[in-house]
């Protein structure tokens, strides 16, 4: 199922993210996904997230699909040139994977193989353009595909709380023009910034899923403020996380904060995308508390 079909029906689309392990044992990931994420619409699978080498996104997507979940295949331009990207995208279609999230990707220097060659033959915009061409039955080299072309829900990302939000909007527009069908955002901790962003992003007429990272602790919040692009956790939230150490340790404070952000932003967006970062078990509570 393409998640765009649900947006079209006016449903509030909930997705969550899982990261494949560094190794071949996928059982734990599948178990957690089945236990905690089977009620949500779709599950994103990251592609060597943060440039750290792991089990592949495509294989994990297929394994999730075999368990009855709807995977979203994340693809970055860091590790493959245009030939490998197109080939993997066709492979996804052949395996029945219909949802894509198309990204530029972190630089190789950010990860655990900083000596690797960064590819970036294409970028997020030209990758969206390429998928659109494949859907029209032609590859990027202008050669015809044999038989029925693939069809996807083509997702892209945007960073609504970035300090250069106008430049982000300009990039979002390029993605829309290239063929993006829906957007997932970077983690939001400042609903007022997100709402302002959505007022401007509305003009593109594409569904946007609010990005949520459950804040696990004050330390994590401070770390994100110092290191994660486009993310700012306000001081009062950090204070809240500090206040009741037991509650924070149990994850309750973080879940409460995340639920509050979802509730505040819900009227302005078309879904929510939860990046639980190992706290997949908290997702059902979060959704309940956010009244979704």
């Amino acid at each position: 199922m393409k998640i765009t079909e649900l947006f079209e029906r006016g449903e509030f689309v909930v997705s969550a993210e899982v990261g494949p392990p560094k190794g071949i044992h996928i059982e734990h990931l599948l178990e957690e996904a089945k236990t905690y994420l089977s009620d949500i619409t779709a599950v994103n699978v990251t592609d060597n997230q943060s440039s750290v080498m792991r089990l592949g996104s495509l294989a994990t997507c297929k394994a999730l699909k075999d368990e009855g979940l709807t995977p979203i295949f994340q693809i970055t331009c860091r590790d493959r040139n245009r030939i490998a990207l197109q080939s993997d995208i066709l492979s996804a279609a052949a395996l029945g994977i219909e949802n894509l999230l198309l990204l530029t990707g972190d630089h190789t220097k950010m990860g655990d193989h900083p000596q690797a060659k960064p590819v970036f033959d294409l970028d997020s915009v030209s990758l969206i353009h390429t998928v659109k061409k494949l859907e029209e039955g032609e590859d990027l080299g202008g050669n015809k595909l044999v038989g029925e072309p693939p069809k996807f829900a083509k997702g892209a990302v945007v960073s609504p709380c970035s300090d250069s939000v106008d430049a982000q909007l300009a990039k979002m527009e390029r993605k829309v023009r290239a063929g993006a069908d829906y957007f997932q955002t970077q983690a939001v901790y400042e609903p007022e910034k997100f709402i302002k962003f959505m007022e401007k992003a509305k003009q593109f007429g594409k569904p946007v899923q609010l990005g949520i990272v459950i804040p696990k602790s004050a330390g994590m919040a401070k770390f994100m403020n110092a290191n994660v692009a486009g993310v700012h956790v306000p001081d009062e939230m950090i204070e809240e996380l500090k206040k009741d150490k037991e509650k924070t340790k149990a994850g309750i404070t973080g879940v409460e904060i995340a639920a509050r952000i979802i509730k505040e932003c819900k009227p302005y967006c078309q879904g929510v995308h939860i990046m639980a970062l190992g706290w997949e078990s908290k997702v059902p509570d979060l959704l309940k508390l956010a009244e979704i």
Binding site: H107, K171, N227
Partner: peptide, 14 residues
């Protein structure tokens, strides 16, 4: 650093 030709990535901070 990525020699992107279609606009910035989401990686810049301040």
């Amino acid at each position: 650093s990525k020699s992107l030709v279609n606009g910035q990535c989401g990686g810049s901070k301040d």
